[in-house]
Simulated scan of single mutants.
Amino acid sequence: MLEATSHLGQLLTVLILALALGMDAFSLGVAVGMKGVRLNEVLRISTVVALFHMVMPLLGMFTGHFMGEMLGHAASYAAGVLLILLGCHMIYNSIYGNGVQILDYRSTAGVILYSLGVSMDSFSVGVTLGMFRSDLLLTIAVFGAAGGLMSVLGLLLGGRVSRNLGDYGEAIGGAVLFAFGIMFIF
């Protein structure tokens, strides 16, 4: 009985953490979705986000306490800078048109950078869960499912919102990414 209660408690803890971490993927998915994405792009982006939401905590769990303390703040700063740059890029493109596009969110590099940005905090959480000897397979599966699902929901919602906002959708999405980047840094 005690073991079943312990497993249920661990499942609830991991699920709450996964949903909290998935909120970044949701919020930023709305911002990127405002730029306009097709259904196949939503699925591709969300799949990569789900993979990163599995890999980053896995790396964190293996890295351990010492490295987590050293890199934890640096990972947040790196994610913040990345999101600020992506946001500025979207704002720039919305103002000056799509003539010169530095980063395409539909490209492989764009999807990887986006996924890395929304999954950075999963690394630090993975370090913490590794110290508590959390069930590895359970953690990775729940984090991946939550990150992917929240990303799909955000991208789809952003696509709907962008149809109503017209040309301003990309600028608003860029401003949201910029704001999240500032929040990561401070």
Rank of each mutant, 00 (worst) to 15 (best):
S94E: 05
A31S: 11
H89V: 04
T63S: 10
D135T: 14
G148V: 06
L86Y: 02
L153D: 11
C88E: 12
M183Q: 15
V125T: 13
L71Q: 05
G97C: 08
L157R: 02
M23I: 14
S27F: 02
A79M: 06
V37A: 12
L8S: 10
L19T: 15
I45T: 01
L83P: 01
L11S: 15
E3A: 13
G110L: 02
V30D: 04
A25Q: 03
F26S: 01
N93C: 05
S151N: 06
F186G: 05
Q101H: 15
A74R: 10
V42K: 04
T63R: 01
Y168V: 13
L43G: 05
L12A: 11
A50E: 00
V125R: 10
A109E: 01
Y105T: 12
F132P: 03
V142E: 05
G174Q: 09
A4N: 15
S151F: 06
L177H: 03
V14Q: 03
Y77C: 07
G87A: 09
S162C: 09
L157G: 06
F62Q: 11
A50D: 04
M90Q: 09
S134M: 13
A175D: 07
F184V: 04
M1Y: 11
G126W: 09
T13N: 09
L28R: 02
I91M: 08
M56Q: 09
G36S: 08
G130P: 01
A50K: 01
H73C: 00
G60H: 05
M120R: 06
S107D: 01
S107M: 03
V49P: 01
M90T: 07
K35Y: 08
R44P: 01
E170T: 15
K35L: 12
A179V: 08
I182H: 10
L103T: 05
G80C: 03
L103I: 08
I182E: 11
N93W: 00
L28S: 08
V142T: 08
G68K: 12
T108F: 07
Y114E: 00
G174L: 09
L21Y: 09
R160E: 14
Q10T: 14
L155D: 01
M150L: 15
L129R: 13
L83G: 03
S151A: 13
G99Q: 14
I16F: 14
I182F: 13
I91K: 05
I182Q: 10
F180A: 04
A145T: 13
A78T: 14
A179K: 04
F186D: 04
E3T: 13
R163Q: 14
V161C: 08
L82S: 05
T13R: 10
S124Y: 11
F143R: 08
F186P: 03
S151I: 07
I182Y: 11
T108E: 04
A74V: 15
Y92E: 07
V48C: 00
Y96C: 13
L165Q: 09
F62P: 00
F178C: 14
M23R: 12
M120A: 10
G33W: 00
F132I: 12
A175W: 08
V118R: 02
D167T: 13
G154K: 02
G126I: 11
L58A: 05
L113S: 00
T128H: 09
V125E: 10
F62E: 09
A4W: 13
H89Y: 05
L8W: 11
G22S: 12
H65Q: 12
G33R: 01
S162I: 06
A74Y: 14
R160M: 14
M131C: 10
D24I: 10
G72I: 12
L157F: 07
M90H: 05
